[in-house]
Amino acid sequence: MTHSEPMVRAEGLTRLYGDFVAVDGIDLSIGRGEIFGVLGPNGAGKTTTLRMLVGLLRPSTGSIVVDGVDMVARPQDARARIAFLPDTPYLYDKLTAREFVHFVAGLYSVPPEQVDRRSDELLTLFGLGDRADDLVEGFSHGMRQKVVMVAALIHAPKVIFLDEPTVGLDPRSARLLRDILRQLADRGTTVVLSTHILEIAERMCDRMVIIDKGRVVAMGTVAELHEQAHETSSLEDIFLSLTGGPADAAIASVLS
């Protein structure tokens, strides 16, 4: 793992929806081969940040550079280096799993021999080998997640962005995903994931950022977050102290 070279760099990233500031001047620098977590309460701006980083949303202001390529100036070149797994795996119901993987490979202009080999390997690895020629419309949420994961890996991206990747996956698949992501990171692929599950973030991420109300409130390794929050207990306590959770008294008064 080399974290020195930034693979993803965002400066002053801001996104406005009318008067509402969803993301407010975020600066990020994520190294090659790093697993980077994006944490935050609901509505903090995690998904908006990820969608800007992968080129699905244009930032209102700020810049994004992926592997040295400016996302705003050269979006196609930047997107060719990345893969994205959305939180809800919307797919074409009338395509089979294999067809979807080949479709994505076509969009990324992956060499045919690489597609043939990798699609079979990946579909089998994710347990979709015997369902690869079924229409996706009959797939469960977890199976759709796996199809998207296979499609994301088909073009060997340099950076993978995952929005809540383990939601809907069974324990075995969630473990498989974690192992794959760790191996990819060890081979130099950068992994950026947003999650609500602090245990996953703590166990998987080399570094993480905590976002609240569109702003970065803390960033670093778990040890660095402990320092920043002046907390010595769990990541959950750090998270709550930085983002502000309801006080015990407030909970008691609502429930009474």
Binding site: V54, L56, R79
Partner: peptide, 12 residues
């Protein structure tokens, strides 16, 4: 529809 993310996020 909502599957457009696959195209929008690709280098096409």
């Amino acid at each position: 529809g909502r599957s457009y993310w696959a195209i929008k996020g690709s280098p096409i």
